Simulated assay, not measured.
Amino acid sequence: MSTRPDEAALPAPIERPAGRRRKAPPVVRHEDKRLAILRIAAQLFAQNGYEATSLDMIADQIGMHKATLYHYIKNKEEVLYFCLVKSFENLDEVVEKVRDRSEPPLQRLRYFAQSLAHAQNSDFGRCLVVVGLRPLTTEASLDIRRFQRRLDTTVRDLITEGIAAGDIKPCVPALLSAMLFGMLNWVPQWYQEDGKYSIDEVVEAFMNMVIQGIAAKPQR
């Protein structure tokens, strides 16, 4: 085992030639700074509400002048729009995986619920659940509403498939989907990361109760 050399034995620091400057750290990319702005804005919107959060507050929180903020965004509504769009990040992959019939419907339903809960309890997801689409113009909210309908359709189709396969008791898919989303949408209102349960434990407990009620056959 080697021993640490004596301080005196260490080579002397290399002297830099006169006039040579230390290399500056890499400049933060425009998109990196923009993402940081969106994340701070999402946190403030969820904490204080959309109306009570100003661009000045966002600029102060991130440590830049308000004038500099306009290099990255146009106005507060645009900030909220992109925060809400970010809340669906990676859920496209979840939708595609849920459509894969190689796994039983109830197992895919658990996976969907867990994935949605993680998305909703991120900074951006919490912003969507707490603030919602109301501050946006009808045109600006169309993409988000369209994706929300896609998620609802995905769950309804999965339930319909489960009923046809004999895995889920006969029920109204639209009502069961509404119950599932309502249950998960409420979590960001009260969930604390430093609380007693992790988000996975919360979702597992919820889905155990749901599946116990809808499964056509006893679950192990």
Results as ranks from 00 to 15, higher is better:
Phe124Pro: 07
Ala52Cys: 09
Arg134Gly: 08
Ala117Leu: 01
Ser2Glu: 13
His71Arg: 13
Asn48Gln: 15
His71Glu: 09
Leu35Glu: 10
Lys74Arg: 13
Leu69Pro: 08
Asn48Val: 11
Val95Thr: 10
Pro104Ser: 01
Leu109Phe: 05
Glu96Asp: 10
Ile62Phe: 01
Val94Trp: 08
Tyr191Pro: 06
Glu204Ser: 15
Cys83Trp: 05
Leu133Asn: 05
Arg99Cys: 14
Ala205Pro: 15
Val27Gln: 14
Ile163Met: 05
Leu128Pro: 05
Arg108Lys: 06
Ala178Leu: 13
Val98Asn: 00
Val129Trp: 07
Glu161Gln: 08
Arg146Gln: 14
Arg134Trp: 09
Arg156Lys: 02
Asn185Gln: 05
Arg220Phe: 15
Pro17Leu: 15
Val187His: 04
Ser54Arg: 06
Ser115Phe: 01
Ala164Asn: 12
Ala205Ile: 12
Thr153Phe: 05
Ala42Cys: 02
Glu201Met: 13
Leu116Asn: 07
Lys33Glu: 00
Val129Lys: 04
Arg39Asp: 05
Leu109Val: 03
Arg21Thr: 06
Asp200Arg: 05
Ala46Leu: 03
Ser198Arg: 08
Arg146Pro: 14
Lys76Ser: 07
Ser141His: 04
Thr153Val: 14
Arg156Gln: 02
Pro170Cys: 05
Leu80Arg: 08
His118Ser: 05
Met207Lys: 07
Asp56Pro: 11
Ser141Gly: 02
Gln61Asn: 13
Ala12Lys: 11
Ala164His: 04
Gln212Pro: 12
Ala12Met: 14
Tyr191Cys: 06
Ala24Val: 08
Asn121Trp: 00
Tyr72Pro: 07
Gln148Arg: 03
Leu184Phe: 01
Pro11Val: 03
Ser2Cys: 10
Ser177Cys: 14
Ser102Val: 12
Pro218Met: 13
Gln120Phe: 06
Gly182Trp: 00
Ile62Met: 05
Ile163Glu: 07
Gly166Cys: 05
Asn75Cys: 01
Gly166Ile: 06
Glu51Thr: 01
Ile214Glu: 09
Val172Pro: 10
Arg145Ile: 14
Ile73Leu: 01
Phe45Arg: 00
Val202His: 02
Tyr111Lys: 07
Glu7Trp: 15
Arg150Leu: 14
Leu35Thr: 12
Thr138Phe: 11
Leu151Thr: 07
Lys74Pro: 14
Thr153Pro: 09
Arg29Cys: 01
Arg34Thr: 11
